[in-house]
């Protein structure tokens, strides 16, 4: 019995681990083609002039993701023109959570006037490649001759409730380091977020 339990525990921890595997700092990102809210597919290669990307796994329903919506929009306003556009990807399964449907994504983008793409990842393929585990979960990429390299993984800042006077803006700092030709001083951070709602079965 005890042995069975241990095997069970190992299986559980393996399952948890397999979900958090994914790109590490320095890895080259494989390009993808996902449907945007305008019904057209989008790839990283479509951004010919980009110097890099701010990939944000986010969604319609998570309170933490919602708290960061405006800050994600600001990142796009501040950095798209500097060559680092925001690409938002919804990793959640709409069958698991109906409010995560493509139509609800379109409605949210319209309501909040998203000026950045908001892509659907229906089979979690890209989500798993990145190893995104929660929303919001950010990956900052830097475009090089070798491809798009992951340079930062983690939170947008350390202040979800906008209450911390000593806020550290991790994504902004990472991009300013990259723009100066340096590696981000802080390349990975942790944050509380909503677990991804995986497809059942």
């Amino acid at each position: 019995m005890k042995k069975l339990f241990l095997i069970g525990l190992m299986l559980i921890s393996y399952a948890a681990f397999s979900q958090t595997e994914g790109y590490k700092i320095g890895d080259v990102v494989k390009d993808f083609s996902l449907k945007n809210i305008n019904n057209k597919n989008l790839s990283l290669a479509d951004f010919k002039d980009a110097k890099g990307f701010i990939i944000v796994f986010t969604c319609n329903t998570c309170p933490v993701a919602k708290a960061y919506q405006e800050r994600v929009a600001e990142l796009n306003v501040d950095y798209a023109s500097k060559g680092y556009p925001v690409i938002a990807i919804n990793p959640n399964d709409a069958e698991a959570v109906p409010d995560e449907s493509f139509e609800k994504m379109q409605a949210l983008a319209k309501e909040k006037n998203f000026l950045f793409p908001y892509l659907l990842d229906p089979d979690h393929i890209v989500t798993k490649q990145f190893g995104a585990s929660r929303t919001p979960h950010v990956f900052v990429l830097n475009k090089t001759d070798k491809g798009n390299i992951v340079e930062y993984i983690g939170a947008i800042d350390n202040d979800p409730e906008v209450e911390n006077a000593g806020r550290t803006n991790y994504v902004k700092n990472a991009i300013s380091d990259l723009s100066a030709g340096k590696k981000p001083v802080i390349a990975s951070t942790k944050a509380i977020g909503c677990g991804i709602k995986w497809k059942k079965g």
Binding site: A155, N164, T189, K190, I192
Partner: peptide, 9 residues
Amino acid sequence: EPDQQQYIE
């Protein structure tokens, strides 16, 4: 706690 990074660690 104000700083997630700190309290998670």
